[in-house]
Write a protein that binds this DNA or RNA. Structure first.
Length: 283
DNA sequence: CACTTGACCTGTCCGC
DNA sequence: TGCGGACAGGTCAAGT
């Protein structure tokens, strides 16, 4: 489910609530989703919460805890006594009032509130790592973040040059190119760059590569500004929804008119993933 | 090797 | 209404 803007939104929300707090206890209801000994978390202080690609990296007093939400993972924090919601109301009070529910697999208790890990399809995971050495393999192969100095047109062009024979859609989904791009933002970035998802990387003109290079950060930033995309299960850390879908040009818009030219948006399959594009705007 | 498919899970939606 | 099948934002391992 969540791609970079969604994971980043969750990271920011949780960091604000939890950095500096200590874990009291952890209740693991679905053991296969928690790799490691949950008892080790007791009394660990949350030093920092970071994000790399779609992975959340928690720095604790003595360990690292990493979380991948995969398709349907959620992290929802409910403050004690709902104090914050009494002022101005909560964006989705009914949603968090149901917690925990049958898809709640792990519960973290803090002095300030409770964090629920929900995952309908149970593809996600949480791992407790002893040191930075154990962390390395999970981050080693990832491409650059879009907002790092390493993200340059040269970098982008050179990485693409190694993947000439696949479609640009497939290339974007590989985390070794630009970390954090998933199905939604691959489609949206390609619309922004006016490139059809079916084009082979080798066929792209330098001008098109440059355009796409500029579009990825633009789309990420736009989505971040709206808290990500809640098409199905994605929720922010407080249970509320992201609003980027209202701004999407192609994703989930099959047969609706293109916002630019009015041509119906098409949806096709590219190596098993649904891909949306405007047959007129994208060449 | 490189590339594709299946697997992991559960729920929803669509057509008959 | 019920039932079967396709599909859903991610990523590996296994197979070709």
């Amino acid at each position: 489910m969540p791609e970079l803007p969604e994971v980043e939104t969750i990271k920011r929300g949780l960091a604000k609530e939890l950095v500096g707090h200590r874990v009291l206890t952890v209740d693991v209801r679905e053991p296969k989703l928690f790799i490691g000994d949950p008892h080790l978390l007791t009394n660990q202080k949350i030093e920092d919460i970071e994000r790399r690609a779609k992975i959340l990296v928690w720095k604790l007093t003595d360990y690292y805890m990493i979380i991948h939400l995969k398709m349907t993972g959620q992290l929802i924090f409910v403050p004690n006594k709902n104090q914050k919601w009494l002022v101005g109301g909560h964006p989705d009070k009914a949603y968090v009032a149901d917690l925990p529910h049958k898809h709640t697999h792990i519960i973290f208790h803090f002095d300030s509130g409770t964090l629920y890990y929900n995952d309908l399809r149970k593809f996600g995971w949480i791992r407790l790592l002893k040191n930075v050495e154990e962390l390395k393999p999970y981050l080693a192969k990832l491409g650059t973040e879009y907002d790092w100095p390493e993200y340059t047109l040269d970098y982008f062009t050179q990485r693409l040059a190694k993947r000439k024979n696949i479609t640009i859609k497939q290339a974007l989904l590989e985390q070794t190119l630009v970390a954090g791009v998933g199905n939604i933002y691959a489609d949206e970035s390609l619309f922004c760059a006016k490139i059809r998802p079916t084009r082979k990387v080798a066929e792209l003109k330098p001008k098109e590569v440059k355009k796409l290079f500029g579009c990825i950060p633009k789309i990420f930033e736009l989505s971040l500004a709206h808290g990500g995309t809640s098409s199905q299960t994605y929720r922010k850390h407080d249970g509320s929804k992201g609003r980027y879908l209202e701004f999407a040009n192609v994703y989930k818009r099959e047969s609706l008119p293109c916002k630019v030219c009015g041509t119906p948006i098409e949806r096709i399959k590219i190596s098993g993933r649904s891909s949306h594009y405007c047959p007129n705007c994208q060449k």
